[in-house]
């Protein structure tokens, strides 16, 4: 069965002055897959996903989502089409309660009050924040704020969930829960995961794209990537 493409890029580039942060990246993510994007610090991972979801404009190239060219669409329009983005640096509504945070993610696409509440409760249960619904988001422990960030992603019931270093700063046990959570998410959504923790990547990814100096240097299954020499050189230096 041929995989259906959900998101693809064609020769996507981004320049900052003379520096090319992302160079001619062509990606193709299929519906239902978990794709990991890895690479050393400064490889251009965040710049690349920011262009996917419209936070920064591309210098050149094209982004296609569900067969539609979204390159010139502003971020909120792309999100409304079914992308969700969770921030690398936790970005919740600190003054609002946990449930209000998720409500904002949910209420955009659901009209009835009761259904919103039900969806909020379900989402919070799913990430394990059910007991904390009434707490003020800014008062939560860091790990819980990360989970809330993910809940806000899930609350949108996105077609594509983009997670920017979701496990950064989490403890080992929290990471285990996270891996289980993303496994269950990936049954319904496509996931693009930027991740430094290689164990998480190996456990979750169907396919891995490796970025270095703004270019794709390798792409393949976890097994292929593990054996890839260019990847090892990029990571170990050489």
């Amino acid at each position: 069965m041929a995989a259906v493409s959900l998101l693809s890029t064609h020769a996507l580039s981004r320049n900052y002055g003379g520096l090319q942060a992302v160079k001619n990246v062509s990606l193709d993510i299929s519906q239902g897959e978990v794709r990991a994007l890895i690479g050393p610090n400064g490889a251009g991972k965040t710049t690349l996903v920011s262009m996917l979801c419209g936070r920064i404009p591309a210098t050149s190239g094209q982004v296609v989502f569900e067969g539609r060219d979204v390159t010139t669409l502003p971020a909120h329009r792309r999100i409304a089409l079914g992308m969700a983005y969770t921030f690398q640096i936790t970005s919740v509504f600190a003054e609002l309660s946990v449930s209000e945070n998720v409500e904002l993610a949910v209420q955009r696409h659901i009209a009835e009050r009761q259904k919103i509440t039900a969806q909020v409760d379900r989402t919070l249960e799913r990430v394990g924040l059910g007991r904390m619904a009434d707490r003020t988001a800014g008062d939560l422990a860091y790990g819980h704020q990360r989970l809330l960030e993910i809940a806000m992603g899930l609350g949108q019931t996105p077609k594509l969930l983009i997670l920017d270093e979701p496990t950064q700063g989490l403890s080992d046990s929290e990471i285990e829960d996270f891996v289980a959570l993303i496994r269950s998410v990936s049954e319904k959504s496509t996931v693009l995961l930027i991740e430094h923790n290689i164990n998480v990547v190996m456990a979750l990814a169907d396919k891995i794209t490796v970025l270095n100096f703004g270019e794709i240097i390798a792409e393949g299954t976890p097994g292929e990537i593990r054996a890839n020499e260019a990847v090892q050189t990029a990571y170990l230096g050489g």
Binding site: C53, R55, P74, A75, H76, R77, I79, A80, Y85, F87, S91, V92, F93, A94, E95, L96, L104, A105, R108, M152, Q156
Partner: peptide, 13 residues
């Protein structure tokens, strides 16, 4: 509270 986050929830800020 957080303009960028609101935009990235799909709202036309």
């Amino acid at each position: 509270e957080n303009e960028e986050r609101t935009r990235m929830l799909g709202y036309d800020v």
